[in-house]
Amino acid sequence: MSDTPRRQRITVEDIGDIAVVQFVDKKILDEQNIAMIGDDLFRLVDELGRRKLLLNFSNVEFMSSAALGKLIRLHQRMTQVGGKLVMCAIAKDIMTVFVLTKLDKMLKIVKDEQTGLNSF
């Protein structure tokens, strides 16, 4: 294992049994970055046993289709383990991408964090 400290890409706040995840970066783009964010998110589920994830996108201004792929895999994983994934506070322009790709029908997306917390 490398001794190089990894840059923090997400922050996690526990509110009851819900893990509320904020993204540190405003842009979720390149594959290496997306892979590391994915690793952190999957670790919450697979190693820390979290079953309720609320992803807060309020800090995110830009993301590519590669990030969508990672969210789909996370959704699939949460379904496999009987958990629930909710996303909130998605910027208007980014939301158009979810609607265009019809992922708004597959993923649970709500307006804000409070609505997200109430949806579990």
Partner: peptide, 12 residues
């Protein structure tokens, strides 16, 4: 195809 993790670039 909706759950496939790739293939959305052209659509976008």
């Amino acid at each position: 195809n909706i759950e496939r993790p790739c293939g959305r670039g052209l659509l976008i």
